[in-house]
Amino acid sequence: MEIEIWSDIGCPFCYIGKRNFEMGLDQFDAKDQVNVIYRSFRLDPTAPVQPEETMVELLAKKYGRSLEEAKQMNAQISDSARAAGLEFNLDTVVPSNTMDAHRLVKQAETAGKDDMAMEYLYKAYFTDNRNVADRETLLEIAGDIGLDISAVDNMFSADDYKEAVISDQNEATQHGAQGVPYFVINRKYSVSGAQPPEKFLEAMKKVQQEEESLVDLGDNQGSTCTDEYCE
């Protein structure tokens, strides 16, 4: 079973959704047969590398709220994160461009360390409040997860993986994704948002049962199943 996850490093619900998905996957009896692929999605491709506003200020401006109301929004999201076992410090997050962070994940994927890269980047952003657009920060994370720092530095100096990041986002649009996180199972079923663990487990079981039924029924059945699982 192949599960593609479209997400952005700067999306709080993507981090929560990742953790909830992992809890659901841990309960899945065929979890060892699941291949997880991380796909890039940038919520704000025009975000600056060196932000001039705080996350609270950006939220207040975006939703037409006061700074205090924006802080309350952050508190509610932090409560959801805590329920998933995560620590968020949203009021002091550094909202920045995530292109290079996504490129680092692509580089890490070649070494089988993309999941680790996602974890370190999410923690750096939401818990430690580091600027994940900063080159030195990204190189430090690369070293922490065991990547060749020189190779990563060379990758950043070139345009490596930029087209792949953009292609991922275009593909999400083609799938009909309205936002992230967005999970696609076997290119047939989708689960949108930071669903509870049991929802992810339910989706995986559904796909498993239907795939097994297709095998049992033989080659006379239709070539694909186009049903969409979406909560």
Results as ranks from 00 to 15, higher is better:
residue 70 A to N: 07
residue 70 A to H: 06
residue 71 K to E: 15
residue 72 Q to A: 15
residue 73 M to V: 14
residue 74 N to H: 15
residue 76 Q to Y: 13
residue 77 I to S: 05
residue 77 I to F: 10
residue 77 I to T: 14
residue 78 S to Y: 08
residue 78 S to W: 05
residue 78 S to H: 08
residue 79 D to P: 01
residue 79 D to E: 15
residue 79 D to W: 00
residue 81 A to G: 15
residue 82 R to Q: 11
residue 82 R to M: 05
residue 83 A to F: 01
residue 84 A to V: 09
residue 84 A to T: 09
residue 84 A to H: 09
residue 84 A to N: 11
residue 84 A to L: 10
residue 85 G to S: 07
residue 85 G to D: 06
residue 86 L to T: 05
residue 89 N to Q: 14
residue 90 L to D: 06
residue 90 L to H: 08
residue 92 T to G: 06
residue 93 V to M: 03
residue 93 V to C: 07
residue 94 V to R: 09
residue 95 P to R: 07
residue 95 P to Q: 10
residue 96 S to K: 03
residue 99 M to T: 12
residue 99 M to G: 13
residue 99 M to A: 13
residue 101 A to G: 11
residue 101 A to E: 04
residue 101 A to P: 06
residue 102 H to P: 06
residue 103 R to A: 07
residue 104 L to S: 05
residue 104 L to P: 01
residue 105 V to I: 15
residue 105 V to K: 07
residue 106 K to W: 10
residue 108 A to G: 10
residue 108 A to H: 07
residue 110 T to H: 07
residue 111 A to H: 09
residue 111 A to K: 10
residue 112 G to Y: 10
residue 113 K to C: 11
residue 113 K to A: 13
residue 114 D to F: 10
residue 114 D to E: 15
residue 115 D to C: 04
residue 115 D to R: 08
residue 115 D to L: 11
residue 116 M to K: 13
residue 117 A to Y: 02
residue 117 A to L: 06
residue 117 A to W: 01
residue 119 E to R: 13
residue 121 L to F: 02
residue 121 L to W: 00
residue 122 Y to D: 00
residue 123 K to S: 07
residue 124 A to R: 01
residue 124 A to G: 01
residue 124 A to V: 05
residue 125 Y to G: 03
residue 125 Y to S: 03
residue 125 Y to I: 05
residue 127 T to M: 03
residue 127 T to F: 00
residue 127 T to Q: 10
residue 128 D to S: 12
residue 128 D to P: 04
residue 129 N to A: 02
residue 129 N to L: 03
residue 131 N to S: 06
residue 132 V to M: 03
residue 133 A to M: 02
residue 134 D to N: 13
residue 134 D to P: 01
residue 135 R to W: 09
residue 136 E to N: 14
residue 137 T to I: 09
residue 138 L to G: 01
residue 138 L to S: 02
residue 140 E to A: 12
residue 140 E to F: 03
residue 142 A to P: 00
residue 142 A to G: 09
residue 145 I to M: 08
residue 146 G to N: 06
residue 147 L to N: 03
residue 148 D to S: 11
residue 148 D to G: 10
residue 148 D to L: 09
residue 149 I to Q: 14
residue 149 I to P: 02
residue 150 S to I: 11
residue 151 A to N: 13
residue 152 V to M: 04
residue 152 V to G: 02
residue 153 D to T: 12
residue 153 D to E: 14
residue 153 D to I: 05
residue 155 M to C: 12
residue 157 S to Q: 11
residue 158 A to I: 04
residue 158 A to P: 02
residue 159 D to G: 15
residue 159 D to T: 13
residue 160 D to N: 14
residue 162 K to D: 09
residue 162 K to Q: 13
residue 162 K to S: 12
residue 163 E to A: 15
residue 163 E to R: 14
residue 163 E to L: 11
residue 165 V to T: 11
residue 166 I to K: 15
